[in-house]
Amino acid sequence: MQEVWRAASLLGGDPQADRAVPPSGFTARLTTFTAAAMAFLAVFALALSLATGRLADRWSEELARSSTLRISAPAGQMDAQIGAALEVLRTTPGIAEARPLPPEETRALLEPWFGPDLPVETLPIPQLIAITEEAGGYDATGLRARLQAEVPGAVLDDHTRWREPLVDAATWLRLLGLVALALILASTAAMITLAAQAALAANEQVIRVLRLVGAQDTYIARAFVRRFTLRALGGAVAGAALAALGIAALPSGEAAGGFLTGLGFRGPGWLWPLVVPPFAAVVAFIATRAAALRTLRAQS
């Protein structure tokens, strides 16, 4: 609490301390510009992480909730095997529903390849049983073993085979997004430290005079800290706003393939761009304060 108060007094407090250091036009604009660029990138990295996170969740959720049982059997045995399979599924814990696909749905599935007039009833195509899982899922290995014993023509596809790489890719992308965020954060801190050090070096005479008339280090640091924090905040507000506008301008809808159009923020996710500027300000505050106090202490 005391720290917070001290931080606040370093920031607000005495605008006189600010006046003690001459304004520096060019470096000030550079700091603001870099903070804006970093905030812009940070908002994009955030959008990417959130979107890939959503994608990973959706894929694993949707795909995990359903599986398919495929039964291939000679025409005469088909009904018997379907019955046996349904019985096995009915008695398997974790399965909410098992539903043989009626011919219309099978036809709809095959239509893209074979056209609408396919006589599915007369063809020896496998019968599909759609399985809906309960939240906890079921034991796929156990079910396979039972099916092998009782319904030799059944193949269980629980979608893990093609779900996993997708979910892995999405999770990996999210991780990359977070790493990018961390790098942006670190670069912001580094850039502000460099700018603060340049300002401290340029104002050596000012610092000497302030010391001579009895200013303590925190007073001198305050002028620099306040200035850089406000610059970073201003730049980051502009950068984050531009990035948010850019993301809002992305075409919406599933038309372009879901992933690309899903890149934006959703609902309360729009609060994330708001978090970026204060965060930039905090980073600037810490970086400048550390740089200033380190430089001042090195002088004694």
Binding site: R211, L212, V213, G214, A215, Q216, D217, L296, S300
Partner: peptide
């Protein structure tokens, strides 16, 4: 300390 020096200079 530097702060003590500052206070003394006042």
């Amino acid at each position: 300390s530097r702060d003590r020096v500052a206070l003394a200079r006042r």
